[in-house]
């Protein structure tokens, strides 16, 4: 009796034709993967992808596409359940976190091999996520900072701090710069500066250190 293996349908969205052609040939040699389509990005590509109903989309977000931030979101909204794996990426923390927020299932760095690419397809199809070891800490830090242990009610009543300002003061107390905070929150550095300015004003603090000391003194932050 022969067992029929259900193949994982994959779509390749990449500008580089060599990458599309050769990677499709390599993946199609795998007994459990089938490439159902490959195309460069265009305004019509969404319909093309939807028409072949892939389970996994390998996305090479070359510069022209990177400018269009909501691409991953648009793809996921158009094709419910689609697992998107970004390939050929740099270990850029900001871009990685943005991609995670948009809903990617995997993020593969430039030095990944074709074998690793095939393994990633299998993993995301099996509801697992792919995160490079270099970026795991970034993800852990980001999640940890989303829910700082901070007595919300007291600080709000006492100083009128918003939730965002409470998060900010907790991050400042841990030595994060405005730029690092901006990356974690997905905000611009200028927006974070504005938040910090308002925070200092509400606390009546002259600088960041004074703000942290003031919150610690009122037991709003651990000493």
């Amino acid at each position: 009796m022969t067992t029929v293996v259900e193949k994982i349908p994959v779509f390749l969205l990449a500008e580089n034709r060599l990458l599309r052609e050769a990677l499709a040939r390599i993946l199609n040699k795998k007994s459990d993967i089938t490439v159902v389509g490959a195309a460069p990005y265009s305004v019509a590509v969404l319909e093309q992808i939807a028409a072949v109903s892939p389970q996994v989309l390998l996305l090479d977000p070359y510069p022209a596409v990177r400018g269009e931030a909501p691409l991953v979101t648009v793809l996921r909204n158009a094709i419910p359940g689609l697992k998107i794996v970004m390939i050929g990426m740099n270990p850029d923390k900001e871009f990685f976190l943005q991609a995670v927020r948009e809903g990617i299932a995997g993020y593969m760095l430039k030095d990944a091999s074709a074998v690793e690419m095939a393994a990633a397809v299998r993993s995301v199809a099996n509801n697992q996520a792919i995160c490079p070891a270099e970026l795991c800490q970034t993800l852990f830090d980001c999640v940890a900072l989303q829910h700082p242990a901070f007595p919300t009610f007291q600080s709000k009543q006492h100083f009128g701090l918003t939730r965002r300002e409470q998060q900010l003061v907790a991050m400042i107390s841990r030595g994060f710069t405005n730029k690092e905070i901006a990356v974690s929150f997905g905000l611009s550095e200028q927006t974070v500066k504005n938040h910090v300015h308002r925070l200092l004003h509400k606390l009546g603090a002259s600088d960041r250190l004074a703000a942290v000391e003031m919150c610690r003194g009122n037991s709003f932050l651990p000493a």
């Binding site: 990458l19 052609e21 990677l23 040939r25 430039k110 030095d111 990944a112 091999s113 074709a114």
Partner: peptide
């Protein structure tokens, strides 16, 4: 470089 492109060239 990178490794994937090298592998794709070799596959070709």
């Amino acid at each position: 470089r990178p490794r994937l492109m090298r592998e794709l060239v070799l596959a070709t």
